[in-house]
Nucleic acid binder design. Structure first.
Lengths: 222, 222
DNA sequence: AATTCATTAAAACGTTTGTTTAAATCATAC
DNA sequence: GTATGATTTAAACAAACGTTTTAATGAATT
Protein backbone atom coordinates (compact mmCIF):
# COMPACT_ATOMS: atom_id res chain seq x y z
CA UNK A 1 0.00 0.00 0.00
CA UNK A 2 3.05 2.22 0.20
CA UNK A 3 3.25 4.90 -2.46
CA UNK A 4 6.57 4.79 -4.22
CA UNK A 5 7.70 8.14 -5.63
CA UNK A 6 8.30 8.27 -9.38
CA UNK A 7 6.23 5.21 -10.18
CA UNK A 8 3.36 4.92 -7.79
CA UNK A 9 0.59 2.36 -7.96
CA UNK A 10 -1.90 3.33 -10.65
CA UNK A 11 0.68 5.63 -12.10
CA UNK A 12 0.43 3.94 -15.47
CA UNK A 13 -3.30 4.55 -15.58
CA UNK A 14 -2.89 8.23 -14.81
CA UNK A 15 -0.08 8.67 -17.28
CA UNK A 16 -2.22 7.14 -19.99
CA UNK A 17 -5.24 9.28 -19.12
CA UNK A 18 -3.18 12.47 -19.08
CA UNK A 19 -1.48 11.69 -22.38
CA UNK A 20 -4.76 10.67 -24.00
CA UNK A 21 -6.50 13.80 -22.79
CA UNK A 22 -3.92 16.06 -24.33
CA UNK A 23 -3.64 14.10 -27.57
CA UNK A 24 -7.40 13.80 -28.05
CA UNK A 25 -7.63 17.54 -27.61
CA UNK A 26 -4.88 18.19 -30.15
CA UNK A 27 -5.66 15.59 -32.79
CA UNK A 28 -9.15 14.26 -32.12
CA UNK A 29 -10.12 10.70 -31.31
CA UNK A 30 -9.58 9.14 -34.71
CA UNK A 31 -6.44 11.19 -35.20
CA UNK A 32 -4.88 9.83 -32.04
CA UNK A 33 -3.50 6.28 -32.23
CA UNK A 34 -2.81 3.93 -29.38
CA UNK A 35 0.87 4.15 -30.21
CA UNK A 36 0.82 7.93 -29.92
CA UNK A 37 -0.79 7.66 -26.50
CA UNK A 38 1.48 4.98 -25.07
CA UNK A 39 4.69 6.52 -26.37
CA UNK A 40 3.71 9.93 -25.01
CA UNK A 41 2.83 8.34 -21.68
CA UNK A 42 6.04 6.32 -21.67
CA UNK A 43 4.28 3.00 -21.23
CA UNK A 44 3.98 -0.16 -23.25
CA UNK A 45 1.57 -0.36 -26.17
CA UNK A 46 -0.50 -3.09 -24.54
CA UNK A 47 -1.00 -1.06 -21.37
CA UNK A 48 -4.10 0.71 -22.65
CA UNK A 49 -5.90 -2.50 -23.48
CA UNK A 50 -4.77 -4.04 -20.22
CA UNK A 51 -5.98 -1.18 -18.03
CA UNK A 52 -8.99 0.06 -19.95
CA UNK A 53 -10.01 -2.71 -22.32
CA UNK A 54 -10.54 -0.82 -25.55
CA UNK A 55 -9.88 2.60 -27.00
CA UNK A 56 -13.54 3.53 -26.64
CA UNK A 57 -13.51 2.68 -22.95
CA UNK A 58 -10.38 4.79 -22.56
CA UNK A 59 -12.19 7.73 -24.16
CA UNK A 60 -15.07 7.20 -21.77
CA UNK A 61 -12.74 7.20 -18.76
CA UNK A 62 -10.96 10.37 -19.93
CA UNK A 63 -14.29 12.14 -19.76
CA UNK A 64 -15.74 10.53 -16.69
CA UNK A 65 -12.64 11.34 -14.64
CA UNK A 66 -13.30 15.07 -14.86
CA UNK A 67 -16.92 15.38 -15.92
CA UNK A 68 -18.25 13.83 -12.75
CA UNK A 69 -16.53 16.47 -10.65
CA UNK A 70 -17.53 19.29 -12.96
CA UNK A 71 -21.21 18.48 -12.89
CA UNK A 72 -21.10 17.78 -9.18
CA UNK A 73 -19.65 21.26 -8.65
CA UNK A 74 -22.33 22.75 -10.84
CA UNK A 75 -25.12 21.09 -8.94
CA UNK A 76 -23.56 22.04 -5.63
CA UNK A 77 -23.45 25.69 -6.71
CA UNK A 78 -27.07 25.48 -7.77
CA UNK A 79 -28.10 24.01 -4.46
CA UNK A 80 -26.38 26.82 -2.61
CA UNK A 81 -28.40 29.31 -4.65
CA UNK A 82 -31.64 27.49 -3.98
CA UNK A 83 -30.96 27.32 -0.27
CA UNK A 84 -30.07 31.00 -0.12
CA UNK A 85 -33.22 31.93 -1.98
CA UNK A 86 -35.30 29.83 0.38
CA UNK A 87 -38.15 29.45 -2.02
CA UNK A 88 -37.92 32.94 -3.49
CA UNK A 89 -36.92 33.40 -7.11
CA UNK A 90 -33.27 33.26 -8.14
CA UNK A 91 -31.67 35.77 -10.46
CA UNK A 92 -31.03 34.11 -13.82
CA UNK A 93 -27.52 35.53 -13.86
CA UNK A 94 -26.71 33.52 -10.72
CA UNK A 95 -27.95 30.35 -12.36
CA UNK A 96 -25.96 31.03 -15.50
CA UNK A 97 -22.87 31.60 -13.39
CA UNK A 98 -23.39 28.37 -11.50
CA UNK A 99 -23.40 26.45 -14.77
CA UNK A 100 -21.10 28.30 -17.13
CA UNK A 101 -18.97 30.07 -14.57
CA UNK A 102 -18.11 26.77 -12.93
CA UNK A 103 -16.95 25.42 -16.27
CA UNK A 104 -14.94 28.56 -16.96
CA UNK A 105 -13.22 28.30 -13.62
CA UNK A 106 -12.25 24.75 -14.47
CA UNK A 107 -10.98 25.96 -17.83
CA UNK A 108 -8.83 28.52 -16.06
CA UNK A 109 -6.94 25.75 -14.27
CA UNK A 110 -4.10 25.31 -16.73
CA UNK A 111 -1.64 23.41 -14.58
CA UNK A 112 -4.08 20.85 -13.24
CA UNK A 113 -5.20 19.91 -16.73
CA UNK A 114 -8.65 21.47 -16.47
CA UNK A 115 -7.85 23.77 -19.35
CA UNK A 116 -6.87 20.91 -21.63
CA UNK A 117 -9.96 18.96 -20.68
CA UNK A 118 -12.36 21.84 -21.24
CA UNK A 119 -10.92 22.43 -24.68
CA UNK A 120 -11.40 18.76 -25.43
CA UNK A 121 -14.93 18.87 -24.07
CA UNK A 122 -15.83 21.90 -26.16
CA UNK A 123 -14.73 20.14 -29.29
CA UNK A 124 -16.57 17.00 -28.37
CA UNK A 125 -19.97 18.70 -28.29
CA UNK A 126 -19.84 18.71 -32.07
CA UNK A 127 -18.11 15.35 -32.27
CA UNK A 128 -19.42 13.18 -35.09
CA UNK A 129 -18.69 9.96 -33.23
CA UNK A 130 -22.04 8.50 -32.25
CA UNK A 131 -20.66 6.57 -29.32
CA UNK A 132 -19.11 9.67 -27.74
CA UNK A 133 -22.25 11.75 -28.22
CA UNK A 134 -24.39 9.12 -26.56
CA UNK A 135 -22.05 8.90 -23.61
CA UNK A 136 -21.87 12.67 -23.17
CA UNK A 137 -25.62 13.01 -23.30
CA UNK A 138 -26.08 10.48 -20.53
CA UNK A 139 -23.38 12.06 -18.41
CA UNK A 140 -25.01 15.50 -18.79
CA UNK A 141 -28.65 14.57 -18.58
CA UNK A 142 -29.34 15.13 -14.89
CA UNK A 143 -27.30 18.31 -14.60
CA UNK A 144 -28.83 19.99 -17.63
CA UNK A 145 -32.30 19.00 -16.54
CA UNK A 146 -31.85 20.53 -13.12
CA UNK A 147 -30.48 23.79 -14.50
CA UNK A 148 -33.20 24.08 -17.09
CA UNK A 149 -35.79 23.59 -14.39
CA UNK A 150 -34.12 26.32 -12.35
CA UNK A 151 -34.18 28.70 -15.30
CA UNK A 152 -37.83 27.92 -15.94
CA UNK A 153 -38.64 28.90 -12.38
CA UNK A 154 -36.49 32.00 -12.56
CA UNK A 155 -38.14 33.17 -15.77
CA UNK A 156 -41.77 32.09 -15.43
CA UNK A 157 -43.01 34.64 -17.96
CA UNK A 158 -40.77 33.33 -20.77
CA UNK A 159 -41.79 30.46 -22.99
CA UNK A 160 -39.82 27.40 -21.96
CA UNK A 161 -38.92 26.61 -25.52
CA UNK A 162 -37.21 29.98 -25.80
CA UNK A 163 -35.20 29.32 -22.67
CA UNK A 164 -34.14 26.00 -24.10
CA UNK A 165 -32.93 27.68 -27.27
CA UNK A 166 -30.98 30.28 -25.36
CA UNK A 167 -29.39 27.67 -23.18
CA UNK A 168 -28.35 25.96 -26.37
CA UNK A 169 -26.85 29.17 -27.73
CA UNK A 170 -24.97 29.83 -24.51
CA UNK A 171 -23.51 26.33 -24.60
CA UNK A 172 -22.28 27.02 -28.10
CA UNK A 173 -20.72 30.35 -27.31
CA UNK A 174 -18.87 28.91 -24.34
CA UNK A 175 -17.74 25.71 -26.03
CA UNK A 176 -16.41 27.56 -28.99
CA UNK A 177 -14.78 30.26 -26.91
CA UNK A 178 -12.82 27.65 -25.00
CA UNK A 179 -12.19 25.09 -27.71
CA UNK A 180 -11.86 27.22 -30.80
CA UNK A 181 -9.24 29.71 -29.79
CA UNK A 182 -7.03 28.44 -32.59
CA UNK A 183 -9.69 28.84 -35.23
CA UNK A 184 -9.90 32.57 -35.54
CA UNK A 185 -6.59 33.58 -34.09
CA UNK A 186 -4.94 32.89 -37.40
CA UNK A 187 -7.37 35.28 -39.01
CA UNK A 188 -7.30 37.95 -36.40
CA UNK A 189 -3.67 37.77 -35.47
CA UNK A 190 -3.68 35.83 -32.19
CA UNK A 191 -5.37 37.49 -29.26
CA UNK A 192 -5.11 34.89 -26.58
CA UNK A 193 -1.94 36.30 -25.07
CA UNK A 194 -3.87 36.97 -21.91
CA UNK A 195 -6.06 33.90 -22.15
CA UNK A 196 -7.88 32.43 -20.35
CA UNK A 197 -8.09 34.66 -17.32
CA UNK A 198 -9.81 37.45 -19.23
CA UNK A 199 -12.16 35.10 -21.01
CA UNK A 200 -14.52 34.40 -18.14
CA UNK A 201 -15.89 37.89 -17.36
CA UNK A 202 -16.17 38.75 -21.03
CA UNK A 203 -18.02 35.59 -21.91
CA UNK A 204 -20.34 35.83 -18.91
CA UNK A 205 -21.34 39.33 -19.92
CA UNK A 206 -22.00 38.18 -23.46
CA UNK A 207 -24.05 35.20 -22.34
CA UNK A 208 -26.22 37.30 -20.03
CA UNK A 209 -26.76 39.84 -22.79
CA UNK A 210 -27.94 37.09 -25.08
CA UNK A 211 -30.14 35.58 -22.41
CA UNK A 212 -31.82 38.92 -21.72
CA UNK A 213 -32.26 39.91 -25.36
CA UNK A 214 -35.81 40.62 -26.51
CA UNK A 215 -37.46 37.56 -27.95
CA UNK A 216 -37.58 37.21 -31.71
CA UNK A 217 -40.86 37.73 -33.49
CA UNK A 218 -41.52 41.39 -32.84
CA UNK A 219 -40.70 42.91 -36.20
CA UNK A 220 -43.20 40.82 -38.14
CA UNK A 221 -41.20 37.57 -38.18
CA UNK A 222 -42.68 34.69 -36.27
CA UNK B 1 -19.17 19.15 -75.39
CA UNK B 2 -22.70 17.78 -75.36
CA UNK B 3 -24.18 17.10 -71.92
CA UNK B 4 -25.57 13.61 -71.67
CA UNK B 5 -28.44 13.19 -69.22
CA UNK B 6 -27.98 10.68 -66.42
CA UNK B 7 -24.22 10.68 -66.54
CA UNK B 8 -23.03 14.10 -67.64
CA UNK B 9 -19.42 15.20 -67.84
CA UNK B 10 -18.15 16.06 -64.40
CA UNK B 11 -20.94 14.07 -62.87
CA UNK B 12 -18.51 11.81 -61.06
CA UNK B 13 -16.82 14.83 -59.49
CA UNK B 14 -20.11 16.19 -58.19
CA UNK B 15 -21.26 12.83 -56.90
CA UNK B 16 -18.01 12.48 -54.98
CA UNK B 17 -18.22 15.98 -53.55
CA UNK B 18 -21.82 15.51 -52.46
CA UNK B 19 -21.13 12.16 -50.84
CA UNK B 20 -17.96 13.44 -49.15
CA UNK B 21 -19.77 16.50 -47.83
CA UNK B 22 -22.45 14.46 -46.17
CA UNK B 23 -20.08 11.80 -44.83
CA UNK B 24 -17.59 14.33 -43.48
CA UNK B 25 -20.47 16.01 -41.69
CA UNK B 26 -21.67 12.72 -40.21
CA UNK B 27 -18.40 11.01 -39.35
CA UNK B 28 -15.64 13.61 -39.54
CA UNK B 29 -12.64 13.57 -41.83
CA UNK B 30 -10.68 10.79 -40.22
CA UNK B 31 -13.84 8.81 -39.66
CA UNK B 32 -14.70 8.88 -43.34
CA UNK B 33 -12.73 6.52 -45.58
CA UNK B 34 -12.22 6.73 -49.30
CA UNK B 35 -14.20 3.53 -49.65
CA UNK B 36 -17.15 5.01 -47.78
CA UNK B 37 -17.13 8.00 -50.10
CA UNK B 38 -16.82 6.12 -53.36
CA UNK B 39 -19.38 3.47 -52.48
CA UNK B 40 -21.88 6.13 -51.36
CA UNK B 41 -21.24 8.07 -54.55
CA UNK B 42 -21.50 4.93 -56.65
CA UNK B 43 -18.12 5.40 -58.30
CA UNK B 44 -14.90 3.45 -58.39
CA UNK B 45 -12.47 3.65 -55.48
CA UNK B 46 -9.74 5.19 -57.63
CA UNK B 47 -12.01 7.99 -58.81
CA UNK B 48 -11.20 10.28 -55.88
CA UNK B 49 -7.47 10.12 -56.47
CA UNK B 50 -7.99 10.52 -60.20
CA UNK B 51 -10.18 13.60 -59.94
CA UNK B 52 -8.79 15.28 -56.83
CA UNK B 53 -5.34 13.81 -56.24
CA UNK B 54 -5.47 13.10 -52.53
CA UNK B 55 -7.98 12.99 -49.70
CA UNK B 56 -6.73 16.31 -48.36
CA UNK B 57 -7.27 18.01 -51.69
CA UNK B 58 -10.78 16.53 -51.79
CA UNK B 59 -11.50 18.04 -48.38
CA UNK B 60 -10.23 21.38 -49.65
CA UNK B 61 -12.50 21.22 -52.68
CA UNK B 62 -15.54 20.30 -50.58
CA UNK B 63 -15.07 23.56 -48.70
CA UNK B 64 -14.01 25.80 -51.55
CA UNK B 65 -17.03 24.80 -53.62
CA UNK B 66 -19.43 26.46 -51.19
CA UNK B 67 -17.28 28.75 -49.08
CA UNK B 68 -16.34 30.99 -51.97
CA UNK B 69 -19.98 31.71 -52.68
CA UNK B 70 -20.85 32.16 -49.03
CA UNK B 71 -18.19 34.75 -48.38
CA UNK B 72 -18.88 36.45 -51.68
CA UNK B 73 -22.53 36.82 -50.62
CA UNK B 74 -21.48 38.17 -47.27
CA UNK B 75 -19.22 40.77 -48.79
CA UNK B 76 -21.86 41.72 -51.33
CA UNK B 77 -24.37 42.27 -48.52
CA UNK B 78 -21.84 44.40 -46.67
CA UNK B 79 -21.18 46.51 -49.75
CA UNK B 80 -24.88 47.16 -50.16
CA UNK B 81 -25.01 48.41 -46.58
CA UNK B 82 -21.99 50.63 -47.09
CA UNK B 83 -23.41 52.10 -50.30
CA UNK B 84 -26.78 52.77 -48.66
CA UNK B 85 -25.13 54.45 -45.71
CA UNK B 86 -23.11 56.66 -48.05
CA UNK B 87 -20.45 57.38 -45.49
CA UNK B 88 -22.79 57.55 -42.52
CA UNK B 89 -22.58 54.97 -39.78
CA UNK B 90 -24.21 51.58 -40.20
CA UNK B 91 -26.30 49.93 -37.53
CA UNK B 92 -24.36 47.03 -36.00
CA UNK B 93 -27.40 44.80 -36.31
CA UNK B 94 -27.28 45.22 -40.08
CA UNK B 95 -23.64 44.20 -40.17
CA UNK B 96 -24.29 41.20 -37.99
CA UNK B 97 -27.13 40.18 -40.27
CA UNK B 98 -24.95 40.52 -43.35
CA UNK B 99 -22.47 38.10 -41.87
CA UNK B 100 -24.43 35.67 -39.75
CA UNK B 101 -27.80 36.04 -41.43
CA UNK B 102 -26.27 35.16 -44.78
CA UNK B 103 -24.83 31.97 -43.29
CA UNK B 104 -28.13 31.12 -41.66
CA UNK B 105 -29.96 31.55 -44.92
CA UNK B 106 -27.51 29.14 -46.51
CA UNK B 107 -28.10 26.72 -43.64
CA UNK B 108 -31.83 26.92 -44.28
CA UNK B 109 -31.34 25.49 -47.78
CA UNK B 110 -31.80 21.83 -46.99
CA UNK B 111 -32.43 20.49 -50.49
CA UNK B 112 -29.52 22.22 -52.16
CA UNK B 113 -27.07 20.87 -49.61
CA UNK B 114 -26.41 24.18 -47.88
CA UNK B 115 -27.71 22.77 -44.63
CA UNK B 116 -25.36 19.82 -44.73
CA UNK B 117 -22.44 22.04 -45.58
CA UNK B 118 -23.09 24.55 -42.83
CA UNK B 119 -23.28 21.76 -40.27
CA UNK B 120 -19.96 20.49 -41.56
CA UNK B 121 -18.48 23.97 -41.45
CA UNK B 122 -19.63 24.54 -37.90
CA UNK B 123 -17.91 21.38 -36.78
CA UNK B 124 -14.77 22.23 -38.64
CA UNK B 125 -14.18 25.45 -36.71
CA UNK B 126 -13.05 23.31 -33.83
CA UNK B 127 -11.37 20.75 -36.05
CA UNK B 128 -8.10 19.47 -34.65
CA UNK B 129 -6.63 18.82 -38.10
CA UNK B 130 -3.96 21.44 -38.62
CA UNK B 131 -4.20 21.33 -42.39
CA UNK B 132 -7.92 22.05 -42.38
CA UNK B 133 -7.61 24.89 -39.89
CA UNK B 134 -4.92 26.55 -41.96
CA UNK B 135 -7.00 26.29 -45.09
CA UNK B 136 -10.14 27.66 -43.41
CA UNK B 137 -8.23 30.58 -41.95
CA UNK B 138 -6.92 31.59 -45.36
CA UNK B 139 -10.32 31.22 -46.96
CA UNK B 140 -11.92 33.39 -44.28
CA UNK B 141 -9.22 36.00 -43.79
CA UNK B 142 -10.43 38.73 -46.12
CA UNK B 143 -14.10 38.42 -45.24
CA UNK B 144 -13.57 38.48 -41.49
CA UNK B 145 -11.19 41.41 -41.79
CA UNK B 146 -13.71 43.44 -43.74
CA UNK B 147 -16.53 42.74 -41.32
CA UNK B 148 -14.43 43.50 -38.29
CA UNK B 149 -13.43 46.81 -39.85
CA UNK B 150 -17.09 47.58 -40.46
CA UNK B 151 -17.96 46.82 -36.84
CA UNK B 152 -15.09 48.99 -35.63
CA UNK B 153 -16.50 51.89 -37.62
CA UNK B 154 -20.04 51.20 -36.44
CA UNK B 155 -18.99 51.10 -32.79
CA UNK B 156 -16.23 53.69 -32.52
CA UNK B 157 -16.69 54.11 -28.79
CA UNK B 158 -16.08 50.42 -28.03
CA UNK B 159 -12.60 49.02 -27.56
CA UNK B 160 -11.69 47.04 -30.64
CA UNK B 161 -10.49 44.12 -28.59
CA UNK B 162 -13.94 43.82 -27.05
CA UNK B 163 -15.54 43.76 -30.47
CA UNK B 164 -13.15 41.03 -31.52
CA UNK B 165 -14.13 38.95 -28.51
CA UNK B 166 -17.81 39.37 -29.18
CA UNK B 167 -17.40 38.47 -32.81
CA UNK B 168 -15.67 35.36 -31.59
CA UNK B 169 -18.54 34.54 -29.25
CA UNK B 170 -21.09 35.10 -31.97
CA UNK B 171 -19.22 32.76 -34.27
CA UNK B 172 -19.34 30.13 -31.56
CA UNK B 173 -23.02 30.48 -30.84
CA UNK B 174 -23.88 30.21 -34.53
CA UNK B 175 -21.53 27.34 -35.32
CA UNK B 176 -22.76 25.33 -32.42
CA UNK B 177 -26.40 26.13 -33.06
CA UNK B 178 -26.10 24.79 -36.59
CA UNK B 179 -23.63 21.96 -36.08
CA UNK B 180 -24.47 20.73 -32.65
CA UNK B 181 -28.19 20.14 -32.85
CA UNK B 182 -27.58 16.48 -32.07
CA UNK B 183 -25.56 17.19 -28.98
CA UNK B 184 -28.20 18.46 -26.63
CA UNK B 185 -31.30 17.08 -28.26
CA UNK B 186 -30.67 13.77 -26.58
CA UNK B 187 -30.63 15.56 -23.26
CA UNK B 188 -33.52 17.85 -23.85
CA UNK B 189 -35.75 15.54 -25.80
CA UNK B 190 -35.23 16.66 -29.37
CA UNK B 191 -36.46 20.11 -30.25
CA UNK B 192 -35.43 20.48 -33.85
CA UNK B 193 -38.76 19.33 -35.22
CA UNK B 194 -39.23 22.76 -36.69
CA UNK B 195 -35.57 23.28 -37.54
CA UNK B 196 -34.00 25.17 -39.16
CA UNK B 197 -36.54 27.77 -40.20
CA UNK B 198 -37.13 28.98 -36.65
CA UNK B 199 -33.45 29.00 -35.81
CA UNK B 200 -32.47 32.14 -37.67
CA UNK B 201 -34.63 34.79 -35.93
CA UNK B 202 -33.97 33.29 -32.52
CA UNK B 203 -30.24 33.14 -33.00
CA UNK B 204 -30.07 36.65 -34.47
CA UNK B 205 -31.86 38.06 -31.47
CA UNK B 206 -29.50 36.22 -29.12
CA UNK B 207 -26.42 37.41 -31.00
CA UNK B 208 -27.51 41.01 -30.95
CA UNK B 209 -28.29 40.80 -27.25
CA UNK B 210 -24.80 39.54 -26.61
CA UNK B 211 -23.25 42.16 -28.82
CA UNK B 212 -25.07 44.95 -27.01
CA UNK B 213 -24.43 43.61 -23.52
CA UNK B 214 -22.65 45.95 -21.11
CA UNK B 215 -18.92 45.39 -21.16
CA UNK B 216 -17.39 43.32 -18.40
CA UNK B 217 -15.34 45.04 -15.72
CA UNK B 218 -17.93 47.16 -13.97
CA UNK B 219 -18.31 45.26 -10.76
CA UNK B 220 -14.67 45.55 -9.76
CA UNK B 221 -13.29 42.97 -12.17
CA UNK B 222 -10.95 44.25 -14.81
C1' DA C 1 -12.44 2.48 -89.64
C1' DA C 2 -8.49 3.84 -87.09
C1' DT C 3 -6.51 6.78 -83.62
C1' DT C 4 -6.37 9.48 -79.54
C1' DC C 5 -7.28 10.98 -75.16
C1' DA C 6 -10.04 11.06 -70.92
C1' DT C 7 -12.25 8.27 -67.80
C1' DT C 8 -13.41 3.99 -65.37
C1' DA C 9 -12.31 -0.61 -63.54
C1' DA C 10 -10.16 -4.23 -60.78
C1' DA C 11 -6.34 -5.55 -58.26
C1' DA C 12 -2.54 -4.91 -55.54
C1' DC C 13 0.80 -1.93 -52.99
C1' DG C 14 3.05 -0.94 -48.42
C1' DT C 15 1.50 1.26 -43.88
C1' DT C 16 -0.92 1.84 -40.04
C1' DT C 17 -4.69 0.64 -37.27
C1' DG C 18 -6.63 -1.62 -32.63
C1' DT C 19 -6.13 -5.72 -30.35
C1' DT C 20 -4.27 -10.18 -28.71
C1' DT C 21 -0.91 -13.54 -27.26
C1' DA C 22 2.67 -15.50 -24.51
C1' DA C 23 6.67 -14.82 -22.04
C1' DA C 24 9.19 -11.96 -18.68
C1' DT C 25 9.29 -9.14 -14.59
C1' DC C 26 7.70 -7.22 -10.45
C1' DA C 27 6.06 -6.75 -5.62
C1' DT C 28 3.90 -9.06 -2.00
C1' DA C 29 2.36 -12.96 1.15
C1' DC C 30 3.36 -17.26 2.98
C1' DG D 1 13.27 -18.25 -0.28
C1' DT D 2 9.33 -19.79 -2.66
C1' DA D 3 4.87 -19.26 -4.51
C1' DT D 4 1.23 -16.10 -6.18
C1' DG D 5 -1.04 -12.70 -8.55
C1' DA D 6 -0.60 -8.35 -10.92
C1' DT D 7 1.72 -5.83 -14.27
C1' DT D 8 4.88 -5.03 -18.09
C1' DT D 9 7.12 -6.42 -22.24
C1' DA D 10 8.01 -7.79 -27.08
C1' DA D 11 6.03 -9.78 -30.95
C1' DA D 12 2.49 -10.85 -33.90
C1' DC D 13 -2.41 -10.69 -35.68
C1' DA D 14 -6.00 -9.65 -39.15
C1' DA D 15 -8.29 -5.73 -40.88
C1' DA D 16 -8.59 -1.24 -42.83
C1' DC D 17 -6.30 2.64 -44.52
C1' DG D 18 -4.80 5.97 -48.69
C1' DT D 19 -2.68 5.44 -52.85
C1' DT D 20 -0.79 3.41 -57.18
C1' DT D 21 -0.68 0.54 -61.10
C1' DT D 22 -2.19 -1.56 -65.27
C1' DA D 23 -5.73 -2.79 -68.23
C1' DA D 24 -10.38 -1.99 -70.12
C1' DT D 25 -13.83 1.13 -71.78
C1' DG D 26 -15.83 5.29 -73.51
C1' DA D 27 -16.54 8.97 -76.85
C1' DA D 28 -14.75 12.27 -80.10
C1' DT D 29 -11.30 13.38 -83.98
C1' DT D 30 -8.83 12.32 -88.12
Amino acid sequence: MTEIPGKAAGDTRSRILDAAERLFMEHGFDGTSMRMITSQAGVNLAAVNYHFGTKELLIQEVFRRRLTDLNRSRLAALEVLELEAAGASIKPSRIVDAFFGTALRMAADVEGGGHTFMRLLGRTYTEPNEFVRQFLAEEYAECVERFLAALYRALPEVDRKEILWRFHFMMGAMSYAIAGTDALQLVTGKFDDENPSQLAPRLMSFLLGGLRAPLAGFGGLK
